[in-house]
Amino acid sequence: MQAQSQTRYSDEELAEFKAIIDAKLAEARKQLQFYLDQMTEQTNSEDGKLRGLDDGTGTMANEELHRLASRQQQLIQHLENALLRIQNKVYGICRVTGELISAERLRIVPHTTLSIHAKQNR
């Protein structure tokens, strides 16, 4: 008798993934707040304003902080979307192949929507 292939993760497995995502989300929000605080500090710092006028380092640092903050915001959005997929019980299903993404991949990149096979064939 052949085992039927699994079409979705069980509620217990989804709970495990939710815990992983919640932890990553908390860390991402903490990191985003750090970047935002750094931008505010740099903006309000007289030393930063004067040094930036002289050599452009203030502008470069500010652009880098904006880039990092934007990247964190994207990660947060991806993680929040993953939580919605868990809530809707469609988490872990590859959007290209329709098959389950391996649990190992989801533990490493919990917001992914592509299986390794689909990602390699893009």
Rank of each mutant, 00 (worst) to 15 (best):
M60C: 04
L84A: 09
E64R: 10
L65Q: 02
R71S: 15
L83N: 09
L84D: 09
G56K: 06
D54N: 14
Q77K: 14
A82D: 01
A82L: 00
Q77N: 11
E63D: 07
H78P: 00
A61M: 10
N81Y: 01
L84H: 09
G58K: 08
E80Q: 15
D54M: 15
R71M: 13
T57E: 06
Q72N: 08
M60K: 12
S70L: 00
L79T: 03
I76P: 02
Q72D: 06
T59E: 12
M60A: 15
A82E: 02
L79W: 01
L79F: 02
A69V: 01
Q77P: 00
L84E: 13
H78A: 11
L79K: 02
Q74N: 09
L65V: 01
L53V: 14
L79C: 04
R71P: 00
Q74V: 07
Q73M: 08
N62P: 00
N81E: 11
L75C: 03
Q74Y: 06
D55P: 09
E80V: 10
T57P: 01
Q73Y: 04
Q77M: 07
A82K: 01
D55V: 11
G52Y: 13
G52A: 15
Q72A: 12
H78S: 11
T57L: 12
N62H: 12
L68E: 07
L79S: 05
G58N: 11
L75E: 06
L65P: 03
R67Q: 11
L68M: 09
Q74I: 04
S70N: 09
E64G: 08
L75S: 03
S70E: 08
L83W: 07
L68G: 03
Q72L: 04
G52E: 11
H78F: 09
Q74M: 08
L79Y: 03
L83V: 07
H66P: 00
A69R: 01
L75F: 01
G58V: 05
A82F: 02
G52N: 15
A69C: 01
A82R: 01
G52C: 14
L75H: 01
Q73C: 03
A61L: 12
Q72G: 04
L53S: 15
R71Y: 07
T59R: 13
Q74S: 10
I76S: 05
N81I: 01
L84I: 10
R67G: 11
H66N: 06
T59P: 00
E80W: 05
E63P: 00
E80I: 06
Q77V: 05
L83Q: 14
L65N: 04
R71H: 12
E80A: 10
S70A: 13
Q72R: 13
A61N: 12
A69L: 02
T57N: 07
